[in-house]
Design a protein around this nucleic acid. Structure first.
Lengths: 188, 188
DNA sequence: CGACAACCGGAGATACTCTCCGCTTAGCTC
DNA sequence: GAGCTAAGCGGAGAGTATCTCCGGTTGTCG
């Protein structure tokens, strides 16, 4: 729906969709994940009806904003693997993912809750992240920096977990991420 | 409020408060953290007004239910330290905490979100857990099973994180918890 | 038992999500 | 550029959840 229709959106519709996305990103960043949709519509200068035609419900909107960000993250991840040695690149990527979710107060938690509902957009996001992590992880493993039995999903979840657990205490983030990374390294 | 008032509650009020707690625990376990409060009141056989006099809002109620459970957990934790050797007791406690939050679908996430709001009940919970963990952690550290620089707060947050991250995939829980525990052990 | 404070409960104020539909306008055709 | 058509707009409002207020009721104490 609204994602891949036969004919392209009319110009005004496309504009409005974009305005809503921008307003939504701002609102979610500012008020946490529970910004009201009517308010987002108002900020965007469109009626609630317009917002809801483009995004079926609050979760869809949230997921769409998230998807956009995730794709940017994965992109930067690919760049990392060319700038750093394998082990470093991996650790650096985790820190990056980290900073992102940290900047988005509560968004991570909200997204996590939605994963249970089976949103197709989020499943897509997960795939994108899994690929990005999988690549870096594979290299790190070949280089002997990370245990062989660790899988991309493990990393995905661990990072998410640490992020969520430190949303209210960002200072601890690096420290905890460090412990987790140690747990992924091969035994000396 | 309603926690430590000068005079004790009237008998009927006390009864109602208890009925609401029971209904709330059932509802939260059954419908996840978003069971409606009016529904809880109905189940408990009281009016919404009564519910809201005892528990200022949804978060307060959730926190109160949580507190009750946490105290039980901490109690069981103390028992563990007498049944197992230090390192084992510690690991076993984490698994226990784990199973509890897992059983409570989504409650962990909800509680976590509230930590940011500074609920006094939850701060108390955290204190209780920190003490329980601190004790087991201290013994494990003395026995050389866990690194010296690990602090109770680290453990608290890591476990919470893993729990939240595996709410939608409980099968991975043990595995991830294992990685985290490895990260807390002294380097070989 | 009588009086009074504590407590009850439900009607309803408020707020939010999401829908429906009459009006507007972009974009194609001639 | 004028007219036609369907895509799109936006706001009124239905549905629902949270939380409040207050007239009536009931426990408790002298």
């Amino acid at each position: 729906m609204a994602v891949n229709d036969a004919r392209p959106l009319r110009a005004d519709a496309r504009r409005n969709r974009e305005k809503v996305m921008v307003a939504a990103r701002a609102a979610f960043t500012e008020h946490g994940e529970k910004a009201t949709l009517d308010d987002i519509a108002r900020r965007a200068g469109v009626g609630p009806g317009t917002l809801y035609r483009h995004f079926a419900d609050r979760e869809t909107l949230l997921a769409e904003v998230y998807r956009h960000d995730i794709e940017g993250l994965a992109e930067r991840g690919r760049a990392l693997s060319e700038q750093y040695p394998p082990g470093e690149a991996f650790a650096e990527f985790l820190r990056m993912e980290f900073d992102y979710i940290k900047a988005k107060r509560g968004l991570g938690t909200a997204v996590k809750q939605m994963l249970g509902t089976g949103s197709s957009t989020l499943i897509e996001c997960k795939g994108v992240m899994r690929d990005a992590i999988g690549d870096l992880l594979g290299r790190a493993q070949e280089a002997g920096a990370i245990r062989k039995e660790v899988e991309p999903d493990d990393v995905l979840r661990l990072v998410h977990g640490v992020v969520m657990a430190t949303e209210s205490a960002p200072d601890m983030a690096d420290r905890l991420l460090g412990f987790v990374l140690d747990g992924l390294r091969p035994p000396a």
